[in-house]
């Protein structure tokens, strides 16, 4: 698929963020920000798997590593905006919340959703990652030379 177009980049970024959010978090942020809009299902939440691939030698030939569970759904708001979600795990309620956020981000409510849902999610994800990276860095080995043979 085409990765070069930047037009899809913002949506790609928020859908990726929603897919990786901790259980219940998107729903909590969304419900705190606003009342949920009416919608109709285009595809009710469905649990399935995705085959995860790796590459031999990290960069070579692709191979099938194993599957992961994924929940997906699609819905339409009264205004016609269509929201999609693919989220990791077996999480129908989270998929619904993620699809609502995806649809709302295409609606006039986009600014509010960005401020109250996406930005906090992003900050939390960044903080969690930074915490692990700081703990990893604390286990980095500092070598020092005990003796050097010169003969």
């Amino acid at each position: 698929m085409d990765d070069s177009s930047n037009e899809n980049e913002p949506r790609r970024a928020w859908m990726s963020l929603l897919a990786k959010a901790p259980a219940g978090r998107v729903a909590a942020l969304l419900d705190a920000a606003m009342a949920r809009p009416e919608f109709t299902w285009l595809r009710a939440p469905e649990i399935g798997s995705v085959m995860v691939r790796g590459r031999a030698g990290a960069t070579g030939q692709p191979f099938n590593l194993g599957e992961m569970t994924v929940t997906r759904c699609a819905l339409r708001l009264c205004g016609g905006e269509v929201g999609h979600a693919y989220v990791q795990g077996r999480r129908k309620a989270d998929a619904e919340a993620a699809a609502l956020v995806d649809a709302l981000m295409q609606s006039p409510a986009a600014d509010a959703v960005r401020r109250h849902v996406l930005e906090p999610l992003e900050a939390e994800a960044r903080a969690a990652q930074a915490a692990r990276a700081a703990k990893a860095a604390a286990t980095k080995v500092e070598f020092f030379t005990m003796a050097r043979g010169e003969d």
């Binding site: 469905e46 649990i47 399935g48 798997s49 995705v50 085959m51 995860v52 691939r53 790796g54 590459r55 990290a58 960069t59 692709p62 099938n64 590593l65 599957e67 569970t69 994924v70 997906r72 693919y86 990652q129 692990r132 990276a133 703990k135 990893a136 286990t139």
Partner: peptide, 19 residues
Amino acid sequence: LPRFGASRPVSTGAMACDR
């Protein structure tokens, strides 16, 4: 489980390393 598809090969060079 129904299979939704296959991922792109994961990029382990971009791994956030714990170790």
